[in-house]
Design a protein around this nucleic acid. Structure first.
Lengths: 155, 155
DNA sequence: GCATATACTTCGAAATATGAACTATTCAAG
DNA sequence: CTTGAATAGTTCATATTTCGAAGTATATGC
């Protein structure tokens, strides 16, 4: 039943191989996050991870490649649960900064270490491979953040 | 506005760096697929890509890390659109094989080449980096397929 | 000031995913 | 055989998630 199509995969272009790996990993990680005893939705987890320091909601929307109204409802949930507060951005009083509370920072630490475990288990890579994969992933992410955002937000 | 936190990212563990890259890439690819002039949903695209050769629906569910009922509705849509047909598996007449039609195979070719382009543009990697990334992604995927499926399907 | 752009919110609709109960078929045991 | 348990897939109603258009408040340019 464990259906093995690794031979088929090898015949595809490297780009498609890469995509299929990324999709498998993404799905697996999402599923593992679900299984966590944490009461946060995926989107809420992602936002927590992004909030190493206070960020504007618009920045988060761009960063998470989603729409402002989604950020609003995610932030609402996290605020209600006591993980973050909204503070007006002194540089532009239209904007809010989302700031983690102490409780939020604790939860963030838990999430980060769980995330590391999940990746290790899901990927099965050793330390060296993980480092190399991380290097490329970082490069990809930088490219996306640099080039991708304008298309991402409908004007 | 193009918010740069690449310096912050570097301070995280490689595992988390890798995850954030994977998430960014996944989201970007999903968004790009949306922008395609193709009238297929994400799930439908994924199923098309998986159907290089006929597969049982249960195999697809395991492979796509999802639930049987989702496969049913995705297959319904693709069948209705003329991209695939259901054929009883002669080896087990409870099971269906999903088989791409000619139209389905054409569409699959289009999707695969589009997918390659999307990855190339989104990632910004050169050929060598792409090959390395693909190698690791394949390894990860094999690990997930090997270890991940049992947990993935509720018994 | 006035017009226009931007940051976020509201809220209702649309898309998606899920799980429990069901049908049909297989398999194993007697 | 035939009976009972397991398996493959389906149905459908529900829950979750996402989105987008219209609205409020603030900022910016002329």
């Amino acid at each position: 039943m464990t259906y093995d199509d690794s031979a088929l995969i090898r015949r595809l272009s490297p780009e498609v191989q890469a995509m299929m790996g990324v999709y498998a990993l993404y799905w697996k990680l999402e599923e593992s996050f679900d299984a966590l005893e944490v009461e946060l939705s995926h989107q809420e987890c992602h936002m927590m991870v992004k909030l190493e320091r206070p960020k504007r909601m618009g920045v988060l929307a761009a960063d998470m490649l989603t729409v402002p109204s989604t950020i609003t409802s995610t932030a609402d949930a996290l605020e209600k649960a006591g993980y973050l507060t909204r503070q007006r951005d002194p540089e532009d009083r239209r904007a809010w900064l989302l700031v983690l509370t102490d409780k939020g920072n604790e939860m963030r630490q838990v999430l980060m270490s769980e995330a590391g475990d999940l990746f290790r288990r899901a990927s099965g890579l050793d330390a060296e491979e993980t480092a190399e994969f991380a290097r490329l992933a970082r490069k990809i992410r930088e490219n996306i953040m640099k080039t991708g955002i304008p298309e991402g937000l409908k004007k």
